[in-house]
């Protein structure tokens, strides 16, 4: 029994590795710049934002470039990871309707390349922050915390989305709209302190914003946020993962009716 379990685990690891390889190749084969492009394109957006918004929002904000970048960095990670994860099930429907495989592996493997991209962008982020004149405090080390919570959140959210995408084909378009709205609600380029206290609290309902805020505090302010922030991030991650896992478990054998 135990031996069988171990063999199963080994086989799953092999499958996971092969899936990751495939997803990497699929993602980067068509672009000449390959991986470089996925860092370059957010940088271009950052550049435009920096040029345009500095006059309006960045006038009396120190380290506005870093502020913008932190927002873009976390938001892009969320966006890429979830919209990539969304197609995990439908894109592999030819396989899971023929062979009995654990379906969550499709989603996890998609997330690996997003995490990889994100980590590369993060290196660039710290370089930019240094050029911007930010002095790094030890608090910067806490960056691992939002990385972990956002990764888990993305996986959970991706599970929900990929299931939705199986059930409703137009999820993709609706999600594009949702992401654009969320972008404006995540205080990427403006500061929430312009709003009254109660409205500011509403922003905490947005998990992506809380992650962005956390990164800004540890990098720009050089302090570690309160325990409430930690709790909130963890809570959001676990809720998303919980719901996602529940849907996968409940619907596991129903997906094939829809594809």
């Amino acid at each position: 029994m135990l031996k069988k379990k171990i063999r199963k685990l080994k086989a799953n690891r092999f499958l996971f590795e092969e899936l990751v390889k495939r997803d990497f190749k699929q993602k980067y084969k068509r672009t000449v710049l390959g991986m470089g492009w996925s860092i370059l394109s957010p940088l271009l957006i950052l550049l435009v934002m920096r040029l345009i918004f500095t006059r309006f929002f960045g006038r009396d904000m120190p380290f506005y470039t870093t502020y913008l970048f932190a927002g873009n960095l976390m938001f892009n990670f969320f966006k890429e990871s979830t919209s990539g994860g969304m197609t995990a099930l439908r894109g592999n429907s030819a396989i899971f309707t023929k062979i009995n495989v654990p379906k969550y592996l499709f989603l996890l493997s998609k997330n690996v390349s997003s995490v990889f991209n994100f980590l590369l962008s993060m290196v660039v982020f710290f370089v930019f922050a240094a050029i911007d004149g930010v002095t790094f405090k030890p608090s910067c080390l806490m960056i691992f915390y939002p990385i972990c919570t956002l990764t888990v959140f993305n996986i959970g959210f991706g599970m929900i989305l990929s299931a939705m995408h199986v059930f409703f084909q137009d999820t993709k378009y609706l999600y594009d709209i949702f992401v654009r709205l969320l972008l404006y609600m995540s205080a990427i380029f403006y500061d929430v302190s312009a709003y009254p206290e109660q409205v500011q609290r509403l922003f905490l309902l947005n998990p992506v914003y809380v992650n962005i805020k956390y990164v800004r505090v540890i990098v720009i302010n050089g302090t570690v946020p309160s325990l409430m922030y930690h709790g909130l991030l963890l809570l959001y991650a676990l809720i998303a993962l919980g719901i996602g896992a529940l849907i996968y478990k409940k619907q596991n054998h129903r997906f094939l009716y829809y594809v």
Binding site: R7, K8, K10, A11, F14, L15, E17, E18, L19, K21, R22, K25, I95, I99, V101
Partner: peptide
């Protein structure tokens, strides 16, 4: 690559493949 991927789907280990 496809051969290995298919082997993985069928539940075999890398060593076996």
């Amino acid at each position: 690559e496809n051969t290995y991927l298919r082997g993985a789907f069928l539940g075999y280990t890398r060593a076996f493949m």
